[in-house]
Design a protein around this nucleic acid. Sequence first.
DNA 1: TTGTAGGCGTTATCAT
DNA 2: ATGATAACGCCTACAA
Lengths: 336, 336
Amino acid sequence: MVAERVRLIDVAREAGTSVSTVSRALNGSDLISPEVVAHVRAVAGELGYRADKRAQEFKLGRPLTVGVTVPDLTNPFFSEVLKGLAASARAGGYRLLIGESGEDPAEELRLVEELVDHSGALVLCSSRLTRSGLEKALALPVPVVCINRTVKNAGAVAIDYRAASRLLLEHLTGLGHRRVLYVGGPATSWSDGERRRTLRRTARSLDVTLDEMDGGWAGNHGYDAGPTVLSSRATAVITFNDLVGVGLLSWMHDNDVDVPAELSVASYDDIPIAAYARPPLTSLRNERARLGELAWEQLATRLAGNDWPRPDLLTPELVVRASTGPARRRARIRTS
Amino acid sequence: MVAERVRLIDVAREAGTSVSTVSRALNGSDLISPEVVAHVRAVAGELGYRADKRAQEFKLGRPLTVGVTVPDLTNPFFSEVLKGLAASARAGGYRLLIGESGEDPAEELRLVEELVDHSGALVLCSSRLTRSGLEKALALPVPVVCINRTVKNAGAVAIDYRAASRLLLEHLTGLGHRRVLYVGGPATSWSDGERRRTLRRTARSLDVTLDEMDGGWAGNHGYDAGPTVLSSRATAVITFNDLVGVGLLSWMHDNDVDVPAELSVASYDDIPIAAYARPPLTSLRNERARLGELAWEQLATRLAGNDWPRPDLLTPELVVRASTGPARRRARIRTS
DNA sequence: TTGTAGGCGTTATCAT
DNA sequence: ATGATAACGCCTACAA
């Protein structure tokens, strides 16, 4: 069934010449007679020769492979980053070796050490690594780009959460909200930290009271947050991401809480379902696929022997939809 | 910055022994004196030696890599398949080389030919390849598993769409629907073909009138289908997948069509947002991650030298939610 | 128990 | 213009 592999030497033998000639003929070296090239090509064709790319790359040097880690393959945010990265890297002649850490820092570190053995470069998406883990990763003998986590001595591409948080809070204060609750994400998430930090700072400057609670990254985390959210004194909620936001909206619907009349909800990321939620979710659009592309560009620059470019910061855009509206004095504090 | 790579021979020199001894000591060969092992290990540690896995694998044989193609990385269906596959393959000591075809058969073929050069096996997720393209892929010198596309002489893992379509239609007829419209998916999709085929057959046996229209795979395809759906005579709609279904629900909401009172909507796949749509979408749950796991199991069996196992067929489960209800005579044919 | 040497499939250097 | 040969970094008979 599986045919024996045809090697360069087989072609050479069959063509009555040497491996060097075959190699050159196939690779289009210009110092070889046209007839020989034709002949060799013909023979190679007949024999069904396929160059062993692994041997080629092994001989030639570094692998044309980018190792990528993501916390969760099913998170639409990472999916789109991967999409952009995959397209760019491929256009640049690189392949993608992908690993999922399951949101687990220790697993991510193992993954990194495994991937690096077969990669010429690394991209860490929203790395959950501890500080020391990250240091180890950056000490590896290949260039590393971090997406959504700023670092020194490495590539860096991120969303500008400072601008993001400001857009959100200004939108809400513009609607009269003075008390806002943030439903957070995974504790290991750098971007959750950034969202909290920038929200706090902006809230202070806008004289808004910011409450915080822990949450998560998925729909059920938002749904489960429902009771706590409802019993809070906030008139508006900002969720860690749209999955959480949509989950929260769902709970509100199930419990007859009118959004946005009773409560406004807004979020980060603007994944596709945000527009199809009921009510459609106000969210911050960011070009996630672009994150992947920029990561590749940084890598390409670095691989070409240059210094790291300056970090790329992508400014999001607020997409106002029906889930946010004027603040109203809460009729009552509901407890269920 | 990037230190010079330490090789086996460097360790040998430093340890005052030979490369074979070092190799054996590091790989835990039992025919070597404990002291030497300890010494070599120590030296290797000091020098920061890391075995070149590429050279190792090159020497040892086939690459421990599975090449995977998906039509669209951002489609939650594929994300989950990848999740399952990634976990299983990793547990089995294999890595994942992933490529996205962009739903394009020609691009998928290019991808396959590129991936196979660096992989010991291939997994094609919902392959969009033409018949001849698929034949080419299966002729490659590595084992190939197809997910959601039945083939002979290869691994095969798929959803049982026959059972799926029956569950859907029986549910709808149980609610009194006699005229059902199917909003289709991409023309290149095998699973769309299967859904149509099994729906037709089942509709006939249940004496249901089945209309069909072309659609697509994303939310906007469903949204755009709104007017056509509304002007049809069907009392229930089945959409190619949940993304399309949610998009359709959204249009219905925007145009004040009461679902399910005026129209029932049901779909395939039950991705997480189905539960959070308004109204929650009746859909067919299938274990997508399991698809990935089974694909790996087939591969592992094959890689171990056995014949291909029988194809795995996963039976879905109908999750009834609020988007489907009793059929009602349509008050009027609305046109917008 | 350890060392020597050959080879995995290719490319590149150096002759011819 | 072409051919022999030495790497690339590692593993593993085989020899000692």
